[in-house]
């Protein structure tokens, strides 16, 4: 399941969905990314998540397909939120179920590493004074994260 949505999501609901589908899986790994404060002395109100609607789901599907080819996982769910989010809000969810934990952990990390490099989302930090809003830059760590999968 892949979803790009403005609405929030509920971890327990997602977890129960993963559990209900298959009794051959002995491991479930979930990851949630949150809005954090990149603050450098400004009054930060949250983040605005812009995306390229026609490309976003396609890009996540591609990442999901690649992950399923590479790891022995039975289910892989991705939710990514867009629009205005507040500090502490949930942004992204990845849930994986697999017979074994090693594959589940690795698959979730693979998906997040590629999502941060390829999925067309852009974060803008929103501040109390709107003219001070600032686009978030990519960091070196995210750029290099893919090396471990190559």
């Amino acid at each position: 399941m892949i979803s790009v949505q403005e609405a929030d999501f509920n971890l327990n609901t997602q977890y129960q969905m993963l559990r209900a589908k298959d009794n051959t899986d002995g491991a479930i790994v979930t990851f949630i990314g949150l809005v954090r404060d990149f603050n450098q002395g400004h009054d930060v109100t949250g983040l605005f998540l812009e995306h390229y609607p026609a490309m976003t789901a396609k890009s996540l599907e591609k990442i999901s397909d690649r992950a399923k080819e590479r790891f022995k996982v039975n289910q892989l769910d991705i939710i990514h939120r867009v629009g205005q989010l507040a500090l502490g809000d949930q942004i992204v969810y990845v849930g994986v179920s697999s017979p074994h934990r090693e594959e589940a952990f690795a698959c979730a990390q693979f998906v997040m590493d590629y999502l941060k490099k390829e999925a067309p989302f852009w974060k803008k930090e929103t501040r109390k004074k709107q003219q001070q809003d600032v686009w978030i830059e990519t960091n070196q760590k995210d750029k290099e994260a893919l090396k471990k999968w190559q």
């Binding site: 390229y52 990514h80 999502l115 941060k116 490099k117 999925a119 067309p120 989302f121 852009w122 830059e137």
Partner: peptide, 12 residues
């Protein structure tokens, strides 16, 4: 074709 230009992505 539909072409798009954009900065490095910053989702997740």
């Amino acid at each position: 074709d539909e072409v798009a230009f954009f900065p490095p992505v910053t989702g997740g």
